[in-house]
Amino acid sequence: MDANQRSRRNPFGMDEQCTNCPELCETREEIVHGYGDVAAEFLFVGEHPTEGADETGIPFSGDERGEALQDVLRALGFATQEPGEEPEIENAYLTLLTRCRHPERPPIDREIENCEAYLSSEVRMINPEIIVPVGERALREVAAEYTTSSPEEFDVDTHHGEEIRGRGFEIVPMVDPAEASEEERETFLESFSELLGRDYRQTKGRRGR
């Protein structure tokens, strides 16, 4: 964690009383802003808070769905905490397209648009080397904003673990680890470990798209 960073939880001090989506204000327990290392080279982006994240206020935590991603982070060396503990993350930052949970449905387009400024601010301030969109919706939104290609060209199952050229960084999509097969999990770990094992800064912008 950066020496000047006081907290991993919402380190940029984003609005914790946001009322941009009145319907979600009535259903949420917590506003779930980003969490992690502000000097991170790797930014993981999910779609919306899970039930557990809505309780803890931390993306990808508090339940089995969140723990599946934490398990991947531990396997890659980004996290060191035991299962069920508050994440202890180095060189990675966790965030979401939307910051509030509706218990009966995924976020609608307007809610993602209302939260876009939070995500774009995090991307700008962190300036990561690699963005990892977790799941189909996250991939489509990240591709629309940070590549020169149409988001319809991307599919998380097809591009799982592959490097995609973004504007200023690489994008490496991940199938939602809570829904991934063991083979898909191992594929991602192998490809990402290979990326970590070479100087990925030298390859940025050289691949297609």
Rank of each mutant, 00 (worst) to 15 (best):
Leu96Ile: 10
Leu195Pro: 02
Ser181Trp: 05
Arg209Asp: 14
Ser61Pro: 05
Ile126His: 04
Val32Phe: 06
Gln70Glu: 14
Leu69Glu: 03
Gly168Arg: 10
Leu73Asp: 00
Met174Arg: 00
Met14Ser: 02
Ala180Thr: 00
Pro133Met: 04
Val142Gln: 01
Glu88Tyr: 03
Tyr35Phe: 15
Met174Ala: 13
Glu141Asn: 09
Arg105Asn: 09
Tyr200Ser: 12
Cys100Phe: 00
Pro151Leu: 02
Met1Leu: 09
Glu190His: 10
Pro87Leu: 08
Asn91Cys: 10
Arg28Ile: 06
Ile112Lys: 08
Leu195Ile: 14
Leu196Lys: 00
Gly57Cys: 04
Gln81Tyr: 00
Thr158Tyr: 14
Cys115Asp: 12
Glu82Gly: 12
Ala79Tyr: 02
Asp54Pro: 13
Glu163Asp: 10
Ser181Met: 10
Ile108Thr: 02
Thr147Val: 06
Val175Trp: 02
Ala68Val: 09
Arg105Phe: 14
Pro151Lys: 08
Gln70Ala: 13
Thr187Asn: 11
Ala144Phe: 06
Ser61Glu: 01
Phe169Trp: 04
Cys100His: 04
Leu195Met: 13
Asn91Lys: 02
Asp199Trp: 06
Ala40Asp: 03
Asn91Trp: 06
Ala3Leu: 12
Gln81His: 14
Asn20Met: 07
Glu136Tyr: 11
Phe169Thr: 01
Leu69Lys: 01
Gly46Ile: 00
Gln17Glu: 15
Ser7Gln: 14
Gly135Asn: 06
Glu183Ser: 12
Tyr118Gln: 00
Glu170Leu: 04
Pro133Gly: 07
Tyr200Val: 06
Ile164Val: 08
Ser120Phe: 02
Thr158Glu: 15
Gly166Ile: 01
Glu23Lys: 15
Glu23Pro: 04
Ala117Tyr: 08
Asp71Cys: 01
Arg165Met: 11
Leu196Phe: 03
Ser61Ala: 14
Thr98Leu: 02
Gln17Ala: 15
Gly36Trp: 06
Thr56Arg: 12
Leu119Ser: 09
Glu29Trp: 08
Pro83Ser: 13
Gly36Leu: 07
Asp63Leu: 03
Ser150Phe: 04
Asn10Leu: 09
Val134Gln: 00
Gln81Lys: 00
Gly46Phe: 00
Ile164Cys: 12
Gly208Ile: 11
Arg8Tyr: 13
Thr27Leu: 11
Leu94Thr: 01
Arg110Leu: 14
Glu111Met: 03
Pro11Glu: 06
Leu196Met: 08
Val32Leu: 06
Thr95Tyr: 02
His102Val: 03
Asp63Glu: 11
Arg137Cys: 10
Glu129Cys: 01
Asp15Thr: 06
Arg65Ile: 15
Ala75Gly: 07
Asn127Ile: 05
Gly161Asp: 09
Arg198Met: 10
Glu136Phe: 03
Arg165Tyr: 07
Glu30Ser: 13
Asn4Ile: 03
Glu23Phe: 12
Pro59His: 06
Thr203Phe: 05
